[in-house]
C-alpha cells in the first residue's frame, strides 16, 4: 500500500521549513509494543545511509533499550550522566555506533530518578537537544502519557505517531494525541486564565456529543486569541505511521479517525507510511539487528523508502534525489558492512 505521494504534502513543506532550524523528529505511540523503537532505529539508519549526520536520542527515560537493539550492550555514557549533572552538555554523552554517520544518546534504563526528571532538568534537556550539531535528530519517546513524553513531543517541530489497526492501540494513539494537543493549547494560553478555564472544563466534564467543540468555545471566547489559536492548529500536525498493516482496513480507519479529529479538535493529520506485517522484521528483531541492514530488500524496508519519498527526505547529503527503491538498497548495502554483527 503506497501513501499519497503528493509533492505538495504538508510534511514536505514542514521538512523544508525546518531548513532554518534543526530537523528534529519526535517518535511516539501512546502504547507500548507498536514498533516505535524499531521505526526510530531504521529511520535513523536510512537517513545515515544517505550520508546525513544523524543523532538518535533514546528519550524513553527509565525504559531505554535502543542501545541493546543496536548491539551496544553497555554504552559508556547515558542520559543519566547529563540529567545528574555529571557532564555539562548533552553532546558529551554522544555515543558512536558502527555507522560513521549515526550517533546515539542512550537512555539510562533501570534508574528510577531519571524517569521522573525535575521540570528544570527536562527544560535543560530540551534546550540541549536543539543545540546538538547534526542534520537530523530523532527522538524516540516512551510509550506512556507522561508530561515528559508530551513535552518532548510538543517541543519537536515534527512528530510521528506509530500505531496499528487494533482497538487498544488506536485508543492509545488517540489518548496520546489528545493529551499532547491539550497540553500544547495550555502552554500557548498559559497567561489567559479564561481560556485555561474553558480547556479545564472540557477536560473535567468529559467528552460528549453536546460539549465536544473545544476549539469553537475558545474561538467564541475572544477574538484576540484567534491568530494564536490558528497558529497552534497549523503547527500541530502529527504524522501517522501505520505498522503491521494487513489490509486496506488501516487506510479506512485512518480516514475515519482524521475526519473525527478535524471535526472535534480542528487540526489536520496525515498518514506518511503504511508498514506491512512482515516476518523479516521480527526475525531481525530477534537478533537485535535493524531490519534495514539484515533484510534490506524486505517489504517494510520498501515501505520505509516510500515514507522518505512522501516526507521529501529521499535526498543524499549532496542533494541527489533517490527515486527508486533499488537505488536506495545500494545505499543501505554500503552501510551494512560497518556493523560487526552482520559480518558473522
Amino acid at each position: 500500500m503506497i501513501p499519497n505521494q503528493s509533492n505538495n504534502s504538508i510534511f514536505s513543506d514542514a521538512a523544508e521549513d525546518l531548513g532554518v532550524e534543526k530537523k528534529i523528529f519526535a517518535i511516539a505511540s501512546g502504547k507500548g509494543g507498536t514498533g516505535k523503537s524499531t521505526f526510530a532505529i531504521n529511520f535513523s539508519l536510512a537517513l545515515a545511509a544517505l550520508g546525513h549526520e544523524v543523532i538518535l536520542i533514546d528519550a524513553d527515560l527509565g525504559g531505554a533499550d535502543i542501545s541493546n537493539l543496536l548491539g551496544i550492550s553497555t554504552p559508556r555514557y547515558t542520559m543519566k550522566d547529563f540529567i545528574h549533572g555529571e557532564v555539562t552538555y548533552l553532546a558529551e554523552v554522544l555515543e558512536s555506533t558502527p555507522s560513521p554517520k549515526l550517533r546515539l544518546i542512550a537512555g539510562g534504563s533501570d534508574i528510577v530518578s531519571i524517569s521522573n526528571p525535575l521540570y528544570q532538568q527536562k527544560m535543560k534537556l530540551i534546550r540541549n537537544m536543539s543545540q546538538l550539531e547534526a542534520d537530523y535528530i530523532i527522538v524516540d519517546l516512551g510509550p506512556d502519557i507522561s508530561f515528559n513524553n508530551l513535552d518532548f513531543f510538543n517541543a519537536a517541530p515534527v512528530g510521528f505517531l506509530i500505531t496499528q489497526n487494533i482497538d487498544p492501540i488506536i485508543l492509545g494513539f488517540y489518548r496520546f494525541l489528545k493529551a499532547a494537543f491539550v497540553r500544547r493549547l495550555k502552554q500557548e494560553f498559559k497567561k489567559e486564565q479564561y481560556i485555561l478555564n474553558i480547556i479545564n472544563d472540557f477536560q473535567n466534564q468529559g467528552w460528549s456529543r453536546k460539549r465536544r467543540n473545544l476549539i469553537g468555545s475558545i474561538r467564541a471566547a475572544s477574538r484576540e486569541v484567534h491568530g494564536r489559536l490558528e497558529m497552534v492548529l497549523e503547527t500541530f500536525q502529527p504524522k501517522l505511521v501505520f505498522n503491521k498493516v494487513e489490509s486496506n482496513a488501516a487506510k479506512k480507519t485512518a480516514d475515519q479517525m482524521f475526519s473525527f479529529i478535524l471535526e472535534n479538535f480542528g487540526f489536520r493529520m496525515q498518514t506518511v507510511g503504511y508498514f506491512p506485517l512482515d516476518r523479516d522484521v521480527e526475525r531481525a528483531y530477534a537478533h537485535s539487528e535493524p531490519f534495514l541492514l539484515r533484510y534490506p530488500k524486505c517489504h517494510v524496508a520498501k515501505a520505509l523508502f516510500e515514507l522518505l519519498v512522501v516526507a521529501g527526505l529521499n535526498k543524499t547529503n549532496s542533494g541527489e534525489r533517490i527515486e527508486s527503491f533499488s537505488q536506495f538498497i545500494r545505499y543501505t548495502k554500503i552501510e551494512a558492512p560497518s556493523w560487526q554483527f552482520l559480518k558473522v
Partner: peptide, 19 residues
C-alpha cells in the same frame, strides 16, 4: 480522564478491523 467512555465508544466505531 483523558478519554471518556462515550468517546471510547465513538472511536471504537471508527476502527475498521482487518478482513
Amino acid at each position: 480522564r483523558i478519554v471518556s467512555e462515550e468517546e471510547k465508544k465513538e472511536i471504537g466505531k471508527k476502527i475498521i478491523p482487518d478482513g
